[in-house]
């Protein structure tokens, strides 16, 4: 396969960036999108040019490090992570636009790499439980209804990649935040911080400069882990409940 890539190049956070066109030859249909970019980078290095910077880690679709908006879609045309997107989803001679996540809260560090530490700060605000440390507790000590366990697990699947923010026309982090709130608020282990968690995480989300939710549904469509859109309504419900009841502070 021979492809034309239009890639966002930006030296650093303060430098202006632009879309730069590259030709990539010898692309196999079995390559992942990142392997295709590796091929481009090998070429660039041989020509003495600076390789394209992009985030990646496990390349198994479970770590949430890879990103990239491909032809306007976060993680590209398939509902998976960029590392699990294969070149068989494209055809010979295609022109592919590759851009970084775009959001005020995710500033570009270099080329296609953005700073997603705003997500870490949202997690720090409430994405934890108070649990005694030490040896693991007896697994059956706390009974969790099957439906609740399933609900928690569905939301625990979030890998924090930020595709929801990238896809949202408002750069909103509601789906990400709701994944963690749903995951922990439904479990007995998360109950002590049930109110403070949702209040603090939503407040931090606002402080970090993410936009609000207009329920376009773009986030849930882009999510490689299938976090569903109703999770946002569930978080709103938790938030209103916490405001009504008042947080239980120490």
């Amino acid at each position: 396969m021979k492809l034309t890539l239009r890639v966002w190049r930006q030296q650093n956070a303060d430098a202006p960036g632009a879309m730069v066109t590259y030709e990539v030859d010898g692309v196999s249909k079995d390559m992942s999108f990142l392997e295709m970019l590796d091929t481009l980078n090998e070429d660039l290095i041989l020509r003495g040019e600076e390789p394209v910077a992009f985030d990646h880690d496990c390349r198994e679709g479970i770590c949430g490090a890879c990103s990239l908006v491909i032809n306007g879609d976060a993680h590209g045309p398939e509902r998976t992570t960029t590392c699990q997107l294969h070149m068989r989803s494209f055809t010979d001679g295609d022109t592919i636009d590759v851009e970084p996540w775009r959001a005020a809260a995710f500033p570009v560090v270099k080329d296609l790499v953005v700073d997603r530490s705003a997500f870490d700060r949202i997690i720090q605000a409430g994405g934890y439980i108070t649990a005694p440390t030490g040896s693991a507790p007896e697994a059956h000590a706390t009974a969790v209804p099957k439906a609740d366990a399933d609900h928690a697990f569905e939301h625990a699947e979030c890998i924090g990649c930020g595709a929801c923010v990238a896809a949202c026309p408002n750069g909103s982090a509601m789906l990400f935040t709701s994944a963690k709130v749903n995951h922990l608020n439904v479990l007995p282990q998360g109950a002590p911080e049930r109110e403070t968690r949702v209040l603090d995480m939503v407040a931090t989300m606002d402080d970090e400069g993410f936009g609000g939710c207009t329920l376009t549904g773009e986030c849930a469509t882009a999510c490689p882990k299938g976090i569903p859109l109703p999770s946002i309504a569930a978080m709103n419900r938790e938030w209103l409940r916490a405001v009504r009841k008042g947080p239980r502070r120490p």
Partner: peptide, 10 residues
């Protein structure tokens, strides 16, 4: 919302 998405996708 507009401030949260200052740069549009190409």
């Amino acid at each position: 919302d507009l401030k949260a998405r200052p740069v549009a996708y190409a």
